[in-house]
């Protein structure tokens, strides 16, 4: 691509907003934000036709900084607001950014039902395995044994696998990347936004401040390196046993299927209702 990320970023950042942002130096959120902007740039979408919604948490602040129609909702409820926006104006391109706690703990019910309902929405879930903004408490994706401010003796619960959860719940498109694999992330977000139906991109991201520090994972760079070393493509993963996959992160497109999209199905309902 001939245009630099910096040029793209400045095209979409809100210049009337008081910076700096709330994210810590080295946070993966910035990588996800830039990937989203590159995807929107490539798709040649106008700013007016994009709605960016979020919930609460570090990820929830992303819309504040971007020059779209932006909606910072309540904790876990971003998908419900987005559902109303999309149904009220299906021409809008609605993207929802959530964190792991936001999307799968307090918003878990909304997440699985949004996947099942299959509206034409794009959900980006930044999974850093921790509640960062509130001070490092364990989330639904904190691994067994990990330390957090609420699992100081080691975590005793099993973690959700968000992408697999989305597949099971019925999403049309499900993909996973890490913040190390930024170029893959651009592509996956673009594919998700093009997809007709509910599309989920899970992004494994680093919270070296609240999670890495308490689990001896080093700084931001160390955590990114570990994503590089432990990532494995969907195709490669298919050839390995469960034991060989232990500790690995599968990246790429997990599911891409054609299902009835409820925004379009409702148009048919309107026709049926008018004729009845």
């Amino acid at each position: 691509m001939s245009v630099s990320t910096q040029t793209i970023r400045h095209e979409y950042l809100r210049h009337n907003k008081k910076f700096p942002h709330v994210w810590c130096p080295g946070c993966g959120n910035g990588i996800v934000m830039a990937a989203l902007l590159r995807a929107i740039y490539r798709m040649e979408l106008s700013k007016d036709e994009v709605v960016l919604a979020s919930g609460i948490g570090c990820s929830g602040r992303m819309p504040t900084y971007l020059d779209f129609n932006t909606l910072h909702t309540t904790h876990g409820r971003a998908l419900t607001f987005a559902t109303g926006v999309k149904l009220a104006n299906p021409a809008l391109n609605v993207v929802v950014v959530m964190g792991d706690g936001d999307a799968t703990a307090i918003g878990g019910n909304h997440f699985i039902h949004a996947a099942r309902r299959n509206l034409n929405l794009t959900a980006i879930i930044i999974n850093n395995s921790i509640y960062g903004m509130t001070g490092g408490q364990y989330s639904p994706t904190t691994p067994f044994g990990a330390r957090s401010t609420t699992s100081v003796y080691g975590h005793i619960e099993q973690a959700f696998s968000i992408a697999e959860l989305a597949v099971t719940a019925g999403a049309s498109f499900v993909a996973r990347s890490t913040v190390y694999h930024a170029e893959l992330l651009d592509t996956l977000i673009e594919q998700a936004m093009h997809k007709q139906g509910f599309a989920v991109v899970e992004v494994i991201s680093n919270c070296h401040v609240q999670y890495g520090r308490r689990n001896q994972l080093g700084g931001a760079v160390d955590m990114l390196k570990s994503y590089k070393e432990n990532a494995i493509t969907v195709a490669r993963a298919a050839q390995l046993t469960a034991e060989q996959l232990e500790g690995k992160t599968t990246i790429g497109v997990l599911t891409d299927r054609q299902l009835p999209v409820s925004t379009e199905e409702y148009e048919k309902i309107r026709l049926r209702a008018e004729q009845s």
Partner: peptide
């Protein structure tokens, strides 16, 4: 609703219903 060009949706709970009507109103409906 569908006869009037409007939209009806049954959500997963009342939290979601309230979120959805806020979203719709923000989109001008």
């Amino acid at each position: 609703m569908p006869r009037s060009g409007g939209t009806f949706i049954q959500m997963e709970d009342e939290i979601a219903s309230m979120g959805a009507i806020i979203g719709a109103s923000l989109a001008g409906v």
